[in-house]
Simulated scan of single mutants.
Amino acid sequence: MTELQSTAFVSEDKFAVAQVALYILAVLQVVAAVMLATGGAPIPFPQQATAMQRLSGTVNAVVMVLAFAVVYCLLARCLRRPTKLVWRIALGTFLTNFGMVVLTMVAQPGPSPVLTGCLCFAGIVSVLRGCKSVKAYSHS
């Protein structure tokens, strides 16, 4: 009985993979913010930069990365009841991230861009497959 209920829930949620991908991308952004804040990911500053400029630049980078994490979480929540606008924003987000991953792989290959690329590709496929449900939802 429980298996039938869980199967029905997964088949009804057309954007489950995209939502999970967005939540994982948000977690990766939080990890990146922690690395930036602790110096694990260096930020290139000029030699003559003052301590205040370095602090300001680091705080700015951390805040921007955390803002992306919040946006990913909000977008994942909005995919529960998607509209055409939310669908387009999600598709654009995944396509933009995928493009950035391709550029990163060309410049500096490694395991992190491959993981992000796989998440973005899965998100793109999930959002495209859920397109019909957005159209059905809009007409009801």
Rank of each mutant, 00 (worst) to 15 (best):
A26C: 02
L28W: 02
Q29I: 01
Q29L: 01
Q29P: 00
V30P: 03
V30M: 02
V31M: 11
A32P: 02
A32Q: 11
A33D: 03
V34K: 13
V34P: 10
M35G: 14
T38N: 11
T38M: 10
T38D: 14
G39N: 06
G39R: 07
G40T: 04
G40W: 05
I43M: 07
I43C: 02
F45H: 04
F45Y: 07
F45L: 00
Q47R: 06
Q48H: 07
Q48P: 02
Q48E: 13
Q48A: 09
A49E: 01
A49V: 02
M52T: 10
R54A: 02
L55H: 13
G57T: 02
T58I: 08
N60R: 10
A61E: 04
V62G: 03
V65T: 15
L66K: 04
A67W: 05
V70F: 01
V70W: 05
V70K: 12
V71P: 02
C73H: 02
C73K: 03
C73V: 14
L75K: 04
L75C: 00
L75Q: 05
L75E: 05
L75D: 04
A76F: 00
A76Y: 01
R77E: 05
L79W: 00
R80S: 11
R80V: 07
T83C: 15
T83A: 15
K84E: 15
K84F: 15
K84W: 15
V86D: 14
W87M: 12
W87H: 15
W87S: 14
I89P: 11
I89T: 14
L91A: 00
G92N: 08
T96H: 08
T96F: 12
N97Y: 09
F98V: 04
G99E: 08
M100K: 08
M100V: 03
V101R: 11
V101M: 14
V101W: 01
V101L: 08
V101Y: 03
V102Q: 05
V102E: 06
L103R: 08
L103W: 04
T104V: 12
M105Y: 09
V106T: 03
Q108K: 14
P109G: 13
P109E: 06
P109L: 02
G110Q: 12
G110H: 00
